[in-house]
Computed example of a mutant assay.
Amino acid sequence: MKIKVLKDGPYIVEGGVPLYREEMVSYKMIIPQSWKKVEKFETKETYALCRCGLSRNKPFCDGSHREGFDGEETADIEIKDEEIKIFEGQDLDLLDIKHLCASARFCLKGKGIWDMIKESSSKEKYEEIMQIVSNCPSGRLVLKDKNGNYIEPTLEKEISILEDNLKGVSSAIWVKGGIAIESSKGYTYQIRNRVTLCRCGKSKNKPFCDGTHLKINFKDENYYKGK
Rank of each mutant, 00 (worst) to 15 (best):
K167Q: 13
K109C: 01
H99D: 13
D81R: 10
L92C: 09
S26G: 06
M130L: 15
I30L: 14
G201C: 07
I86Y: 05
C50E: 10
E82V: 04
E88C: 00
L162V: 06
D145S: 10
E45Y: 11
Y27T: 13
Q190M: 08
K167W: 11
Y20V: 09
C101D: 14
K2L: 10
D115M: 08
A48K: 12
E72S: 13
F218Q: 04
R56E: 14
K85G: 00
G226F: 06
I12Q: 15
W35M: 09
V175C: 06
E67W: 12
K123N: 12
E163C: 03
Y126M: 11
C52M: 11
P137G: 03
R56L: 10
L143N: 06
K80R: 15
R194Y: 04
G177W: 11
N135W: 07
V5H: 01
R199V: 00
S134Q: 08
V169F: 14
S138I: 01
Y189F: 15
S121D: 11
C50M: 08
Y187T: 04
A75P: 08
W35Y: 14
R199W: 03
S138D: 01
L95H: 14
S64M: 12
S203W: 09
S103Q: 14
D8Y: 02
E83Q: 13
I151P: 01
A172R: 01
R105P: 00
S160H: 13
D96A: 03
Y224E: 02
I86L: 13
Y189R: 06
E73P: 02
E119K: 11
A180D: 14
Y126E: 13
E78Y: 12
V175G: 05
S203N: 09
E14V: 12
V142Q: 13
V133Q: 11
L162W: 11
K215C: 00
E39L: 14
P18L: 08
K80E: 14
K167L: 15
Y20D: 04
R21E: 15
Y187I: 02
R199G: 03
I77V: 15
E152V: 03
L143C: 06
T212I: 11
I3N: 05
E152A: 08
G139D: 09
L143P: 04
L49I: 10
T74Y: 02
C200H: 04
A48V: 00
E221D: 15
L19P: 05
I129N: 05
S121H: 10
D76V: 00
S171G: 14
K111T: 12
V133E: 11
A102T: 13
G177V: 07
K58C: 02
